[in-house]
């Protein structure tokens, strides 16, 4: 059996071309090691155009950058990408430092509120849920809110059903065995995990009035879509939904420009976290 990487490989010069194309259209810098993503995401466009390979698609794009196809390629490359326990260092920081502190601080109320603010298909919210279950919070009132502006991805998130490729990625095998059941080609997340999480459609550019207060907020890999002004006002709004001293976790590549006014940057083990002032 062949690994997918060997099936539709992109030549390095075309990979660079695709990176540049995405950057020139939307200013998003795609990481070096995202070949796999380009391959799965572009395959449908290749087929739809009646072409054979991604290299053919690149040749086509070189003459037709500002077209519908050019836009489709950008969209395919940048949206909704997520996986379980993405950025393991942040989860490790939560497990070993942030959560113990929160549990101490909330000893009286035994109530914790989390928010995955660009939840996509739910892996981030569910990873947190599995982590919390492993920490034995059974007599605590714990809830995780997952939001996204795409109701389509949230529908998948709510179903708690994942493909093999999705549970193969980032998810420890022990958690797969513990929290998933197989149904046909899909993997179904168990009820106890799903019960902890609810999903709601929310556009981060709108007012966040009525949300929170939260103890910890993930706002990962979504800031890249906003200009500096929008970013700043979103950070301000996020801050308003959080307890003083609550934690904000951003994506690895998102240098939180303008974050200082509302949050203090800290390094916890190998992770960067932001504490609400």
């Amino acid at each position: 059996m062949q690994s997918q990487a060997s099936v539709a490989e992109i030549r390095p010069e075309n990979y660079r071309f695709l990176q540049e194309h995405v950057y020139s259209q939307v200013g998003i810098v795609l990481e070096e090691d995202k070949h796999y993503l380009f391959e799965c995401r572009l395959a449908p466009i290749v087929r739809q155009l009646g072409l054979n390979t991604i290299d053919d698609l690149c040749t086509f794009l070189k003459g037709n950058c500002q077209t519908e196809v050019g836009r489709q390629v950008v969209e395919a490359m940048t949206t909704n990408e997520t996986y379980f326990f993405r950025d393991p260092a942040q989860y490790e920081a939560i497990r070993s430092v942030l959560l113990p502190r929160l549990m101490e601080e909330r000893q009286q109320t035994k109530k914790l509120r989390f928010w995955s603010a660009a939840a996509s298909t739910g892996q981030e919210a569910y990873s947190l849920a599995m982590l919390l279950i492993a920490q034995g919070l059974s007599d605590w009132d714990v809830r995780i809110l997952g939001t996204d502006f795409s109701s389509q991805v949230l529908e998948r998130a709510r179903s708690g059903k994942y493909q093999q490729i999705e549970v193969n990625r980032g998810l420890p095998a022990s958690l797969l065995v513990k929290h998933f059941r197989q149904s046909g080609t899909e993997w179904q997340l168990s009820e106890p995990v799903r019960r902890m999480v609810s999903f709601e459609t929310i556009d981060l550019r709108n007012s966040m009035h009525g949300l929170g207060p939260f103890d910890l907020v993930f706002c990962r890999n979504v800031m890249i879509y906003f200009d500096a002004g929008t970013k700043k006002s979103i950070l301000e709004e996020l801050h308003r939904t959080m307890f003083g001293g609550a934690w904000l976790l951003l994506g690895g590549v998102e240098t939180a420009f303008g974050v200082d006014e509302w949050f203090e940057r800290q390094t916890v083990q190998n992770a960067t976290v932001y504490v609400a002032r």
Binding site: S3, Q4, A5, P172
Partner: peptide
Amino acid sequence: EYVMKPFTKDVLVG
């Protein structure tokens, strides 16, 4: 750990 086939490089390294 356990990697299901087919896999990608990202999966394996992860």
